[in-house]
Design a binder for these strands. Structure first.
Lengths: 189, 189, 189, 189
DNA sequence: GATGAATGAGCCTTCATTCAT
DNA sequence: AATGAATGAAGGCTCATTCAT
């Protein structure tokens, strides 16, 4: 047989894309991404046929990475507020630990290159969060709200806090706490 | 005088940019924008020295347009909740009436082309809202929150509702109402 | 107004294309053609939106050039054989004077880039030859032959002689004469 | 022995090349040819060190295939016209049976990739035809003509008829007959 | 020998910006 | 000031060829 496509290489390209997009935006050259990944520009296209494919896969990658982190060490029971606070902490930790991912994600979120199919797939990936999300909604005022709006509101508050933290890392603890209070008011207030 | 005509052309370019960016994203060609504005590609550069300048000015334009609409017919006094609800309605009306502006804005918000100076200037433009914003904050739980976070949270909730409305225009009234309830809980809950 | 597209520049590109294709074949780079024409690579695309367009226009250009030369100084009457011999001489003169055109043409003839529409247009351009061609056919054994075959046969004999002349320019006179004899036998033999 | 398998593979590549070139021209990717041959792209290069080699070998292959078919069942004696007509029929049969080969050949004929050495070798391969060709020439008006021109003329008439037949297969019998008459006039008229 | 991933030069085309008219 | 052709640096992608497995 011949050399097989390596997951490490694929992953290296994706990680390089995050760094380069963080610096240069979605207009970043594929050649730059390949170089950052330590791969020839031609190789990038054996892993991602198209720049759009790379972007779509990157979106999925970041989303599932974030979703995974979010549930990290989340207790199955206990007071709802405690569990929510735990998830909130995970969320903020993720953003603090990976500012480039958060920045790249922010751009991918509004990009026209990301297809509807990819967005649908991303929702499916985040399914594990579904049960938790249901608990968030059903137990409070978001109960009767269309799910699309509920998700957007939650995302809005989370994102706002993350960005505030990233803008002023020094004040992270206070911002996290204040953000959580706002979040709590939104979902249980 | 000779300036009048220029302002019209400048404005035509800005409006054309909104439409083209709505369709093609920030990567849209200046030539396409010029064509949509009914202007030669060369002329675009007599009004905006570089594409980045165009984008920055566009950001300012949309932001001030939105800010202007927001205060439209806003009573100086009366119950706070009524006035807030009025402003909320204006906000949603603006998004519903100008989906392309909202979409272009969403992309400009995360773009690296928009300078810090421009973002600062935009805040200044929105100054008239400052007093109102102060009232929103000081009268409730946002009181002790860093202003950066407060603004981001408000923007997050507004944006979430706008996008939900634009995604499902048929359900606009219910979404507006539900969004306002969430907003209210955030600022006064 | 602005600079207008210049026919000279368009023509320079076409002539450069002939020279470069003669040397490097149809795979020649557009950048090389532009350089040979003394024009920036970008400019080539303001005159020909696509490489395929350039090739198609080139085909038309050479064909009409050749057709024009063919009728040069052709007497309207007189013995048929004399007129045919005159035309034959023009044909060979053209090939001898413009070997690169002939070589480029040979490649364009068999290229898949040349559309059916272009080939049809080329036939229309050569229409002036139509009357003469009719006279060639109707007065001899080609009379009852499908026109498609007749044209191909004539072209085959002409091309064969041209190529023999280009391969051994030193023997041009003898080759021309022998070729004409063969041609004559074909159409009147 | 170990060679047997190799010859099959080599042949498969050559046949695949014919099909792919017929469809996509000489610019066809070696990878596409390999795929069509059911072989890995790397393997193609163990049989043909470069694409140019593949093309040159293909030229030889088609030429010798055609030459072989041409003499098929050709009687050693009998009236010259009968034998020539038989050969003519073989020629047309070949083109009708293998349009892709004919099309690929037409492109190889004018390609710069085919070396002078290859063209010489091709003539050598067609040597069996040499005696017959001599008979064609010496018995008629082509007698005193440079051999290069004679071969080109014969090829021109044959090719013209083949292409007419391939363009309108429905009229094949009439075209073949008319083509032969023209051929006869050329060589014996 | 066979395989197919890896390489990187090169290609066509686009586009922001400049400049002749 | 307006126009649109001219410019040339990129950019995404392809492909012949090499090489690890």
């Amino acid at each position: 047989m011949a050399r097989q496509k390596s997951d490490e290489k694929r992953s290296a390209i994706l990680q390089a894309a995050i760094r380069v997009i963080d610096r240069q935006g979605l207009g970043a050259a594929t050649a730059k991404i390949a170089a950052e990944a330590g791969v020839s520009n031609g190789s990038l296209f054996t892993y991602f046929p198209t720049k759009a494919d790379l972007l779509n896969d990157l979106y999925l990658e970041i989303k599932s990475d974030m979703a995974g982190e979010l549930m990290q060490g989340l207790p199955d029971d206990g007071p709802f507020q405690d569990r929510l606070r735990h998830a909130w902490g995970n969320w903020m930790d993720w953003a603090s630990a990976h500012p480039a991912r958060r920045h790249a994600m922010a751009q991918l979120m509004v990009s026209d290159e990301i297809s509807a199919a990819t967005r649908a797939k991303a929702d499916a990936i985040a399914a594990p969060l579904g049960a938790f999300l249901d608990e968030i909604r059903t137990g409070g005022p978001l109960r009767d709200m269309p799910i699309g709006l509920a998700m957007r509101l939650i995302d809005g508050v989370v994102t706002a806090t993350m960005d505030a933290v990233l803008a002023e890392p020094a004040k992270a603890p206070a911002l996290r706490a204040a953000g959580f209070d706002a979040f709590w008011r939104l979902v249980r207030g």
